[in-house]
Amino acid sequence: MKQFKGRVLASGNYKGKVVVSRQGVNTLATFQKSALMNKKEVIASDQNNSDIFGKNITGVALALPMTIGSTTGGMVLQVICSMKINPACLLFSAPIDSLAAAGVVLAKVWENSDIIVIDKLGEEFLKTINTDDEIEVKEDGIVTIL
């Protein structure tokens, strides 16, 4: 059992599986296909990200260093939150980037989203955690790999 503490940007509790991307997640490329097709779940569709490509990331924790790609990224996060097909938590190892931050804020203010967001969990967090690990996220920003 290992614990990491990060900064809480949107609080909440979660217990369940995690999907891990060790590279930056391209928001548009990852979410666009499922959102466009009005799917009930997001199957990550960025072929350039083999860590998460083809994985169902709706309702689970997504661990990542940062988001990358088009500056539409924030809006795409807002869209998937409005469709309620977002990951349950976003767990950033690095300080959150401006595009993801905008997305999280847009989702909170305009969609009343309950997405949990923690950043600054550290490089060690991303080195330690693996896809399909069971984790627990507490509202004080502590992430435990069970």
């Binding site: 500056t71 539409t72 924030g74 809006m75 807002q78 401006s98 595009l99 905008a102 997305g103 847009l106």
Partner: peptide, 19 residues
């Protein structure tokens, strides 16, 4: 944003759409 900051010397963050 990149051009305005670098070539024109204006000031802007790398914002998301809607911001």
């Amino acid at each position: 944003v990149n051009y305005a900051n670098s070539v024109l010397g204006a000031r802007c963050n790398r914002n998301s759409g809607m911001i």
